[in-house]
Design a protein around this nucleic acid. Sequence first.
DNA 1: CATATACATTCCACCTGGTGAAACGCATGC
DNA 2: GCATGCGTTTCACCAGGTGGAATGTATATG
Lengths: 257, 257
Amino acid sequence: MTKFNRSVERSMKIIEVISGSGVTSLAFLADQTGLPKATILRICATLVKQRWLTQSRSDSRYRIGPSFPRLSATPDSVDAIIDAGKSEIVALTESTGLAVDLAVSIGNGRVEIVDTTRHFIQHGIFPDTIGYRPSPFRSALGSAFLAALDAEELTTYSTKLAENTRGKDREAAMNFPKRLLEVRKNGFASREEAYWGRAVDYGGTPSAIGVAIQADKKALGAMSLVWLAEKRTVASVVEAHLDQLSMAAVSIGQQLS
Amino acid sequence: MTKFNRSVERSMKIIEVISGSGVTSLAFLADQTGLPKATILRICATLVKQRWLTQSRSDSRYRIGPSFPRLSATPDSVDAIIDAGKSEIVALTESTGLAVDLAVSIGNGRVEIVDTTRHFIQHGIFPDTIGYRPSPFRSALGSAFLAALDAEELTTYSTKLAENTRGKDREAAMNFPKRLLEVRKNGFASREEAYWGRAVDYGGTPSAIGVAIQADKKALGAMSLVWLAEKRTVASVVEAHLDQLSMAAVSIGQQLS
DNA sequence: CATATACATTCCACCTGGTGAAACGCATGC
DNA sequence: GCATGCGTTTCACCAGGTGGAATGTATATG
């Protein structure tokens, strides 16, 4: 009789819970699987190492990661950016004292946040942003990315994006050509003032400046510095940290080419 | 330093080869991974047992099986709902004094929470809910959404969902037809009493009532009012706030059509 | 600002479950 | 009939995994 492997059984059980429940804490996994937390921690650490899972920096909860095998393959560049970006964004947070978001292109002119150093205690803003897709026209990440696309991509995407937007987003879409010139001139994009993308941002509204991440002149993602709007002005952050932000973006880009 | 689990590492390697190469023989796996055949055999037997892999009868080669977790890609409509929903849920929290969760469909009859006002409420219920996928049968959000699907969708999903659930969820799945009628009659879904959601030991038990969000008669998500069970009864919240909740859901739906 | 609490993480003595080389069995094809 | 290549089983050995308890850390509340 062929024997079975207990550790593998356990890891499957864990993955099934995470895949079924979305974001999950260690305690929740322990409750659902009946396994000791220490055991789950080791298995999850192994899965995280290969990026089958990712672990939130702020509260260390788990979710399915970018390398988990899918039917429809994600481009390797996504994984590469996450990998290259990990140490860069941590370093950038250390040197600036501000939170950093990292986002990758999802193919229709928009980006999705894949990693962040946001920490509630330290930065005072809502930390749980992974998986969120910021507005292409009003957010720092979205417009930094759009502005870095070449003319051809830009026209295809921006008309299509504008069609599907409503309300204030639509207004922002109309004004985007103007904004675009500014972003390109300044070398960064900033979040539209008083813009809050989700209810969780309401109250502690963040400010942000973003730049695109490019490899071989192709825009692949964006990253941004984020802080509580009431604490500092955009101008002062630009003055103090824009060059570091840009350098980090270039450095990530170089690791991809 | 956290230790890693070797067996889990090996099983990942094996799955990645199979997922990358399609149908795969034991010898090929041994060649690609450098592991002894006996080891691979045991791991694959474990994976086959849980149907993450299937083994062809004739030549015993492996391929990805029916129970391997499949991830549904996030549809673009998600962004529109978040955008339309954010001010509605803030307003709803302000007028009712209760927390509000907003969830969107992620396919297969399930929803994922994408925005919340739980932070605004003192003595709150477990606050970190974004990314969580509530039970389709036991939670207010999940069953409100299911009940709003048309007959065809409902039958496809609910049988598939029932297959993949275990334990208490399975029980709830069996009783769902009865529950469904009630939800449709009442115009809202409530959380099953014993359903604990994701927090293991945190605070008190939450109660919730949920309604679906629809555009052009198509269910796109759900939203719910959440409060501490010990503070108010479901009946009193329904009496006082159900109409506001329903109106908010309709209003979000209208912005999407 | 201090205190309480729910979690995550680390530690380490114990010992079971996994290991893999070798033997076996069974096709297929020369 | 014999050789070859594959999947499968066996079993003595011991590295690797285990899990209860201790420690560390973040958040909530008065």
